[in-house]
Design a binder for these strands. Sequence first.
DNA 1: ATCGTTAGATACATCTGCGTATCTTAAGGC
DNA 2: GCCTTAAGATACGCAGATGTATCTAACGAT
Lengths: 192, 192
Amino acid sequence: MSLNSRRRGAELEDAILDAAWDTLIEHGYHGFTFEAIAARAGTSRPVLYRRWPQRADLLMAVLHKFWGSQPIEVPDTGDLRADAIGFLRNADKGRTGLMTVISAQLMEYFRETGTNFEELRDRLRRPGPLGFEVIVARAVARGDLPDEPRSRRVVNLPFDLLRNEMLMTMRPVSEQAITEIIDDVWLPLLLR
Amino acid sequence: MSLNSRRRGAELEDAILDAAWDTLIEHGYHGFTFEAIAARAGTSRPVLYRRWPQRADLLMAVLHKFWGSQPIEVPDTGDLRADAIGFLRNADKGRTGLMTVISAQLMEYFRETGTNFEELRDRLRRPGPLGFEVIVARAVARGDLPDEPRSRRVVNLPFDLLRNEMLMTMRPVSEQAITEIIDDVWLPLLLR
DNA sequence: ATCGTTAGATACATCTGCGTATCTTAAGGC
DNA sequence: GCCTTAAGATACGCAGATGTATCTAACGAT
């Protein structure tokens, strides 16, 4: 592996984090070993240990690099239903869907460290309003929804249901499930 | 360990399954090893291998014994809200809550076998109507709800939300969360 | 009392990952 | 061009788990 060039600093670190990320996706937290990651990155374990003494340190570095980095796009079509469905689609197909599945693979990590899904998400999420908060606020501004207080649970309901769907099936969420969530549950609740 | 009596047949098998169950709860799927289980059951690995050649075989035997065995009690108070809240409480505090958490620990198993949460649940669930189907049917019979078709997603919504809550926090679900699910989401949707 | 079955103990070779230590040599700053 | 830094290779002992083989002795049926 020492053909010619020897990577250093940030370049090396990026390569390792990429390898770690790929390893996590392909083999879950169980396969997320210094051994496997070093091999995949074309380096050796001591190089990893020098930077991240604990497996959890490396994991956090990976998640920081790849999780928060790509927020879900919030559509702005001028129509509440279209915005909601589009947002769920984006959440499903983008990195977030992947992250949900990954999070599930981290149960072993949660057990080891005593943390949970929620804490991890809060720790990695960038600040600002949630997607559905934006969508609802826009609808209210347009006059499509009455300007009344709504609980976070109601506003963010579709996302909770989408997550539940993802976790139960560990597969891409069907278009039918998405429209059911919006048409059978969320919109009737908002517009009652 | 051979003080006096040597267990055989069903007695031994029960003891092993108990030990396997405890091991799964305490150490997750990662700790669910023939080594640990045999030690805990006070026997040796060959005894286990003779009965369950694969780890997955043992796991399924354990889940069959401890999962389906205790259905969630469906309250029948004559009041829709009380029934719903009571049912969620029962689901949370009973074995089901535990099973949800356990299921999360099985992500590694799902990965290995290519199955998922949903398939496992369907495979282990005893036949018959779901809890909330019963609760809604009773309310309709009393005349408390109109007799109109409702999607499975709407009827079983509280359970999906409860599961989401359990998976996100990996802790007992708060009374507040339960009442929010029923009062802010489900009842307004049914009674709109 | 005998006998077939099988629990339980032990041993084995093997594998994978861990964490550390050591050495070389390439890279980059000055 | 020298010199400090650190990458990369390798080796070591350790731990835990795997799957199988072998032996004994307890149990249950007859």
